[in-house]
Design a protein around this nucleic acid. Structure first.
Lengths: 93, 93
DNA sequence: CGTCGCACTTGCATTTTGCAAGTGTGACCG
DNA sequence: CGGTCACACTTGCAAAATGCAAGTGCGACG
């Protein structure tokens, strides 16, 4: 499997990169991600579980039943790729 | 829709970026892509149609019922993003 | 005129995604 | 102490995307 295929295996699923992009601005709560991205709640829950398992993000417990999701170093390392893809997308206007 | 979302709308589908990556090495024929990537033939046909419609690649007629697929400028512009994602994928070893 | 390679298409099973509604839990209000 | 609320999910089911296997069309070549 190529390097690109390995990357897509982790962040190639629908919404995954968009979640990571949102977290580049700092930790976010579940409801914030949901409202900002418009992602279906079950998909968001699934993606967050997968990305946590892949070591891309972690859960930070806040108060009682509230937590925030924050990128790990591995997640932050996606910034370059996300910026590059975003620039490409912007050029298609 | 964000720039990233716009990009993923075009190259976010499964196999799409892998096809583009393969074409960064130069034009390829259908059978070559299929064998090199291990992509199901109907998916490959669908992706090639979509990527052509999006202006990412073009068909170059060779002889009779053979053609090659080549990236357009728009397709070549994905190189930076693909390299960045590939590097990230390599770091996860 | 029959066979071959190439580029697909088609039919159907499996998997992923999406929508809508429901669940659990602790804080806060009266 | 009971009721309501916000938040973070889970669940059930329909729709869409993906994958597998087999089939089609069509020039070239013998």
């Amino acid at each position: 499997m190529s390097d690109l295929a390995a990357a897509l295996d982790i962040v190639g699923a629908r919404w995954a990169l968009l979640v990571v992009e949102r977290l580049l601005d700092g930790p976010q709560r579940y409801g914030d991600l949901q409202r900002d991205l418009g992602v279906p709640t079950n998909m968001l829950a699934t993606r967050l579980r997968e990305l946590e398992a892949a070591g891309v993000l972690t859960r930070l417990p806040l108060r009682h039943n509230t937590r925030a999701y924050a990128l790990t170093d591995r997640g932050l390392a996606l910034r370059e790729a996300i910026v590059a893809l975003g620039r490409w997308g912007a050029e298609q206007a």
